[in-house]
Computed example of a mutant assay.
Amino acid sequence: MNIKMYLNNEKWLAGMTMKDEAEPENFNMALHACQDREVILQNRRQLARFLNCELGDFVCAEQTHSANFHQVVHADKGRGADKLETAVPVTDALYTYEPNILLCSFNADCVPVFFYHEPSGVAGVIHSGWQGTVKEISLKLFKHLIHDKQCDPNDFHVQICPALSQEKFEVDEDVYVQYKALGYADKWIEYNEQTSKYHIDNQQTVKQQCLLAGIPENQIQIDHTCTFQSSDGFSHRQDKQSGRHLCFIMKKEK
């Protein structure tokens, strides 16, 4: 199995599954983008065994490129784990204070983020495609946690995981205008005169949203692996029938 682990200690478990040609459907994790539902469930169970948890510990959302987030509680365990119909609806970020819940985000070029906050014990995942980024999903979630849940921004740790690189994220003016309107993304926008296209670094824009929330820069990490260019990446831009990575985090029970 091709699994990139970022955290595995006594408190937190976090990582991202990667494309693996030796596995069924290349280790695709998405029920909404698959050839065989049973293969996906098999892949998810294999991941669960590796992480020493159960498929019923997974919580998945119906990702719709929204800026909506949901606080996961114990009663949510298993939502979206084995069927799409039970996923948390119209939501692109999940967070929880509860232990032994695997928060899941599915991605193929969109920016996957996971984070944790040591003092409060909160952890979460964010799915930020370009639409989620221009809707400022990351900034809105962190503002909610800081202002409504009294989380000190200085205690967040954020990992921005593999996504489409600026070189491969090529867009027309309609998308450029929306990034431009943010007022802070200009540094990560380049114009190609030969193609009349714009190239945008979505990872850096998401990082800037974390900084705007007050999170210290040295506590925000970026994995610059490009999902289009890497053989380990699922890329919807490269292949419309592409599978999906699963970005995850779990708070371990003390």
Results as ranks from 00 to 15, higher is better:
Phe228Pro: 01
Gln229Ala: 10
Gly243Trp: 10
Glu38Ile: 04
Ala48Gly: 14
Glu173Ile: 05
Asp232Asn: 08
Asp20Glu: 04
Phe228Leu: 08
Arg44Gly: 00
Ile40Arg: 06
Val72Ile: 15
Ala108Trp: 02
His236Leu: 11
Asn43Met: 03
Lys11Ser: 05
His74Lys: 15
Ala181Asp: 10
Glu85Gly: 08
Trp188Arg: 05
Thr91Leu: 04
Lys149Glu: 07
Ser105Val: 13
Leu164Asn: 04
Gln204Thr: 05
Glu62Val: 11
Leu139Cys: 02
Val122Met: 03
His147Arg: 05
Leu141Thr: 13
Val39Gly: 01
Gly183Ile: 12
Ile200Gln: 05
Glu10Ile: 12
Gln35Asp: 06
Ala185Tyr: 11
Lys197Gly: 00
Leu84Cys: 11
Glu118Trp: 09
Lys140Gly: 02
Gln63Arg: 11
Gly121Ala: 03
Phe234Gly: 03
Gln238Arg: 12
Lys11Leu: 05
Lys254Pro: 09
Gly80Gln: 10
Lys4Cys: 10
Thr96Trp: 00
Trp188Gly: 02
Leu182Lys: 07
Glu253Leu: 05
Tyr179His: 03
Asp20Arg: 01
Gly132Asn: 10
Pro153Lys: 13
Phe228Val: 07
Thr133Lys: 09
Tyr6Cys: 03
Arg45Cys: 06
His144Tyr: 15
Glu21Cys: 02
Val72Asp: 07
Leu84Gly: 13
Val113Phe: 04
Ala181Ser: 13
Cys151Ser: 01
Lys187Arg: 15
Ser165Met: 01
Asp76Cys: 12
Ala93Glu: 10
Asp239Leu: 07
Leu212Thr: 11
Ser105His: 07
Val88Leu: 14
Val73Trp: 08
Lys143Trp: 03
Ala185Leu: 11
His127Trp: 03
Gln131Asn: 15
Ile146Glu: 00
Leu31Asp: 03
His117Phe: 01
Asp239Val: 03
Val88Tyr: 13
Cys161Thr: 07
Ser120Ile: 12
Gln208Asn: 11
Pro216Ala: 13
Ala48Asp: 06
Asp36Met: 02
Met250Gln: 15
Lys197Tyr: 07
Lys252Ser: 05
Lys149Cys: 00
Cys210Ala: 09
Asn52Ser: 07
Ala81Val: 10
Leu94Cys: 05
Asp82Gln: 13
Asn100Gln: 14
Leu31Val: 09
Gly214Arg: 12
Thr17Tyr: 09
Val125Asp: 11
Ser165Tyr: 01
Tyr116Pro: 05
Leu212Met: 14
Glu25Asn: 05
Leu145Met: 01
Tyr198His: 08
Lys149Thr: 03
Leu103Ser: 12
Ile126Glu: 09
Asp174Trp: 09
Met5Gln: 10
Arg45His: 12
Val177Ser: 12
Glu98Trp: 03
Lys83Gln: 15
Gly183Asp: 14
Lys140Cys: 06
Gln159Thr: 12
